[in-house]
Amino acid sequence: MSLFRDLKRIYRDGWKLVWRNPFVSLASIIIITLSLFLISFTLVFYGVLDNSLAKIEQRVDVKFYLLPDTPKPELEKFVSQIKTFKGIDKVRIITKEEALTNFLKRYEKDQLIRRSIDELGENPLGPSVSVRAKDPHIYGKIVEEVNKRIVPDFPYLDHVNYRDNSYIIERLNLFSSVARKISYALIAFFSALAVFIVLIFMGLVIYSAKTEIWVKRLIGAENRYISGPFAVAGIIYGFFSAFIVVATVVPVSSWVGKLTQSFFGDMNPAVYVHNNLIPLTVFTFSTGMMLGYLASMFVVRRYLKK
């Protein structure tokens, strides 16, 4: 018995199942398409939310303000020590001069402050060190480590803005953690719902072919001849459904992106989809075909066990 010949026949019978039952095939494609839309848009939503949160988190940092007379070697030593800590993403020095420039820019319309600076005649600001962590949850630990390991031998630390911002940082951490958990739950829920809908519908589709299954069993067909064509049909339905989803996700996400531009800013759905089009396409096609295949096989197996 030639395996290639068997596969060819199973593939051919699968196609026949699809195009000889056009209404059933169309209905199956619609159902799988709707399910894929559910999954895909939930994932895009999660992707956009995750990226937006990541962008906000990236803006969070901790600043160590140093005294104006901090010697440069001490400043550099301070920075190099911080760089040895675990979880540090970026460390940036803001020089006294930069600090003054930024300060004057922030208060350029405030004449009183500008006059006060002019009267001082010198730069009252000291350098600062901005530290960004890979994980915003560890800023507290970083400050603790600095206080424990560096500050005892470093008399030039003026103050740390972590205490002022810790409430905001913690609220942000809490919000992003909760938002991500809700997103995971939504993904899981909608994925399960999508799979459930497809299973129920494929059950109806295959029920309508139960005569064929019954006859094949009673004439002695091996299981692969009975289930194979349905598996092929399921994969074909999944493929066409994925095609529809991928073809519509770009214009739909553009439309949604325009509506949500002010909220999500740069990372709106259109941008996310554009940047991740290839992985999203691969994911949609593989999910669609897998969904069609597994649903068909799961339902047909029940008839084969009887």
């Binding site: 026949k16 199942l17 000889r20 039952n21 005569t211 064929e212 019954w214 006859v215 069993r217 009673l218 004439i219 002695g220 067909a221 091996e222 299981n223």
Partner: peptide, 22 residues
């Protein structure tokens, strides 16, 4: 082993049980 056994039999059902889309 049932498929191999059933392959030795030819069955004609009272209601024919023909496959309608073949």
């Amino acid at each position: 082993d049932l498929p191999r056994y059933r392959q030795k039999l030819g069955v004609v059902f009272q209601d024919y049980r023909l496959i309608p889309d073949k």
